[in-house]
Simulated assay, not measured.
Amino acid sequence: MTRFLELEGCFNFRDLGGYRTSGGGTLATGLLYRSDGLHRLTARGRDGFAALGIRTVLDLRAEEETLRRPWTPPENWRGRRRVLPLRPEPPVWSATELERADPAFAAEHYLDTTRTGATALGAAFTELTAPERLPAVFHCAAGKDRTGVLAALLLAVLGVSEEVIAADYALSEQATARWVASLAAGNEDDTPPAFATLPPAMLHAKHETMLVFLRGITELHGSVTGFLTGLGVREEQLDQLRSALVR
């Protein structure tokens, strides 16, 4: 199936449905989406968004980002939007050039994101475990890093294998190519100048990066479920999420 939805203005809007779980089920389509910044949606893109019937938008960007690049919902949208910053402050990059190019560097950044964004992650799961909150979409700026962390945790707790989670994460490479092609075509872009200073490992979505991140969660917390219950997410809430999304 094609995972990318063609919503004009976004490059990385995807349906997380269709993946198989370890219990033999399949994730329902049309209920859970991941995306890059919704503020990029054009008027036509907002019409496409409205047609999806989304009830909940979780914005994982920092408060300052949401103010600088606000999202304009479709006219008459009656959904619920929450700003849940996974990184309230911009990261400070410090490492050798060799380390900064290593996929493990990005994985460690994601593990750090689970620390800086612990409260926000707990709140995100609480939101998504309420059936009336679906369909839902969560997003950051590029839809790769902060969004990738939440997507990985969600897919893992729903029973999707690590290899499939890593493959889903790596699809952001295609989104980057779409973004680059848009720039080459002369289209406008709102990427801040700081993008050019990102460590090399953070410019890609390598399969191995996600595997290292998931193994790190297991080493630190025993399992993704152990990590989430440590944040205050209850087992019955996770069961509700599975009931709503696994067919």
Rank of each mutant, 00 (worst) to 15 (best):
C140R: 00
E108C: 15
R87Y: 08
T116S: 08
L86Y: 02
T119F: 01
R78C: 11
A123V: 00
R115D: 09
A142L: 06
G143W: 06
P88I: 05
D102E: 13
V92P: 00
A130M: 08
A95N: 14
L128K: 08
L134I: 03
D145N: 07
L98G: 05
R81M: 12
V92Q: 11
R78W: 03
E127F: 13
R87L: 10
A104L: 13
G117W: 02
H139S: 12
T96K: 08
R100G: 08
T96F: 09
E89M: 03
H109T: 08
R115K: 13
R133W: 07
V83W: 01
R82A: 07
L121K: 00
P91H: 05
E132V: 07
T147K: 12
K144V: 13
D102H: 13
A123S: 14
E99C: 04
A101L: 10
T129F: 10
R81T: 13
A130W: 14
W93G: 09
L84R: 00
A104G: 01
G117M: 06
A130G: 02
T96L: 14
G143V: 05
L121A: 02
Y110G: 02
P85N: 12
P103Q: 09
K144P: 04
A106S: 12
T114D: 11
R80G: 00
P88Q: 09
T119S: 14
L86H: 01
L134V: 03
Y110V: 03
P131M: 07
E99A: 10
A101I: 13
A120P: 00
C140E: 00
R100D: 03
T119L: 08
A95M: 14
H139T: 11
A123I: 00
A130I: 05
D102L: 03
R80S: 08
D145K: 07
D145H: 10
A130C: 07
D112P: 04
L121Q: 01
D145E: 03
R78N: 10
R133Q: 07
H109V: 12
A120W: 06
L84F: 02
R115E: 05
L134M: 15
A107Y: 03
P103G: 03
P135G: 14
A141V: 13
T114P: 01
A107K: 02
T119C: 14
P88G: 10
R80W: 06
R115F: 06
R81I: 11
A141Y: 04
S94L: 10
E108Y: 08
F105T: 10
R81S: 05
R115N: 02
R100I: 06
R80T: 03
E99M: 05
D112R: 09
L84T: 00
T96S: 12
V92G: 03
P103S: 05
R115G: 01
A95V: 11
W93L: 08
E108I: 13
A136L: 13
A104C: 10
H139M: 14
P88E: 12
P131H: 07
